[in-house]
Design a protein around this nucleic acid. Structure first.
Ligand SMILES: [Mn+2]
Ligand SMILES: [Mn+2]
Ligand SMILES: [Mn+2]
Ligand SMILES: [Mn+2]
Lengths: 218, 218
DNA sequence: TAAATATTTTAGATTAGCCTAAAAAAAAAT
DNA sequence: ATTTTTTTTTAGGCTAATCTAAAATATTTA
């Protein structure tokens, strides 16, 4: 059994390693979890003892098969709860992450099975991220960043790379939401900002920084 | 802010004090929380420092106004989540308590408001216990124990005093459920067991111990 | 009312998860 | 190839929540 804190470490390592592909550094973990590197070193020894990470001192960590499976189950729970909060309890997509961060740690063999069923087996969370199934499998997102889209390219907003409340609130303000239809009207060479048309109506100019964080269908 | 553990202590004290009326002893708390009396003494000092209990050494504890309010909010959350699990996720009433024990500690200003709304403002949990409102007010149960009901008395099963899985499973077996119509057919003087008719159909004989734990409408 | 028993508290440890400061190792710069 | 800088680990401490054993207090019994 993993503790609340251990689960958060595994999830952080999974995300930082790009789905378990690269090594992850102590400092990187300490940054996302807002703890000191010394605390991370302590925890890495503990996680290695539990056989959920491969850890050689000074050389970063990777998840073991068991660790990756655990991480994906937590991500599955997180995303299913987010769907519940938005679809059933009518929260906005920018309000659910913090609550899901708590709900993802509820322990019950049956709860998530029943929740998944209740929600109609959703494939994506409210931010467009795929939901792993019981075996940890998920459909990778087929999407490109708005910043890379050529002029005249049209697509559906499928996800975001950045999910901070400030960013989500900005998107709400300019009427960009998950499922919105966007079209690249012009690319301003001066600062790489992009003029877009949203849902065939209003146009807006978004900075390159913003465009980089919006993912649309290919 | 109260910790997970502090919340559990407050809830235990509330239940043991009969809605905050009587003093509660250290040993009684240690028994329901399955900790040693020494640990309870430590925690009582801490809770007194936070002004949620009135505590004089060797003389038991009562909840302060603030402590009672906190306890009732946790009970509100517990019972609303139980309704969700039974009504929406199709759990049986004997499967939900352990999960609600975890869900009751999720912190969010809005979550419970939204959940309450989603569930249609239920007044009772799946075991017939009243759900406190946002101010901690609830309708007291108007019910008597089946063991006290006179012969020929007819009533609806409104709640249970005992909610252990073993007891709930026994009730399922003899077809007693929340809302079932029961009628006292005979009282066996020898061992105080009671013959009852359920939903106007089958009759069964239940021990006095069982009857004591079944609550029916007056 | 004095002794025996039960209850409660204190003293001193332990574990998880965190910290700061210092040491060790690796990486980058000269 | 050294020196400097950065990263990571270790050493030693802290707090919350628990424990066992012993001491203090209250209650019951004789
Ligand atoms: Mn999230
Ligand atoms: Mn989390
Ligand atoms: Mn319950
Ligand atoms: Mn609880």
């Amino acid at each position: 059994m993993l503790t609340f804190t251990e689960e958060n470490y595994l999830k952080a390592i999974y995300h930082l390693s790009d789905h378990g592909r690269n090594d992850v550094s102590t400092n990187a973990i300490s940054e996302v979890l807002k703890t000191k590197p010394a605390s991370v070193s302590d925890m890495l020894r503990k996680l290695a003892d539990k056989n959920v990470i491969n850890y050689i001192k000074y050389q970063g960590v990777t998840l073991t098969h068991k660790g990756k499976k655990e991480a994906l189950q937590i991500i599955r729970k997180h995303r299913l709860w987010e769907v519940f909060l938005v679809e059933k309890l009518k929260f906005n997509w920018d309000e659910v992450h913090e609550i899901a961060e708590q709900l993802e740690h509820i322990q019950s063999k049956f709860l998530i099975k029943r929740l998944d069923e209740f929600l109609g087996y959703p494939q994506h969370d409210p931010h467009g991220d795929p939901i792993p199934n019981e075996n940890g499998e998920m459909i990778p997102k087929k999407q490109i960043s708005l910043s890379e889209a050529p002029v005249q390219k049209q697509g559906i907003v499928m996800g975001l790379k950045e999910t901070s409340p400030l960013f989500l609130q900005y998107l709400d303000k300019i009427n960009i939401y998950l499922g919105a239809k966007v079209k690249v009207v012009d690319r301003i060479e001066f600062d790489s900002s992009i003029e877009i048309q949203i849902d065939g109506k209003k146009t807006a100019i978004v900075s390159n920084e913003v465009a980089k964080n919006i993912l649309i269908t290919e």
